[in-house]
Amino acid sequence: MSSHAEGSHDASHHHDDSHSPAHYVKIWAVLLVLLGVSLAGPEIGIRWVTLITAFGIAVVKAFLVIKHFMHLTVERKVAQYAIGACFMLMLLFFFAVAPDVMKHWGVNWHNEAASNMKREIERSEHHAPAADQAHAPADGAGHPEASAPAAATH
């Protein structure tokens, strides 16, 4: 990518800073640093740190792209509202459906099938050899377990 070299040439042109190639390259560099942090986060091993680095950084990255690459923050309001409204709708969808789909038990009911998923997952692990990826699985996914048949519902 020759963008690096290009950027320093164009920075002197008449565009205000926020539209200059040099500015874009700077933002890109920040994005890459953030990517690195989010990759490093899980290495620390603390679950909350991982989640914050992974998703918090995703939000920050998204904001950077939206603001500096898509220029949504300087766009006419109508476009901002349209995008914002659709995002809000997704939050509405998630939080309104969560009581039904996310939870698997209530005062008077228990989703048996969902509990059986755990066994299902572990059973399907038998088809795959032990993990040989960069990350070792958090819990011992490869250890053999009596492959109990999934709860019969048919």
Partner: peptide
């Protein structure tokens, strides 16, 4: 949003999916 929302709803409800998720290539 619909697709990822659906995924998130399941993922939060099924912590044991972490076992499967462990095999994605980070």
């Amino acid at each position: 949003g619909g697709l990822l929302g659906g995924y998130l709803l399941h993922r939060f409800g099924h912590p044991e999916w972490a076992t499967a998720a462990a095999h994605t290539n980070t």
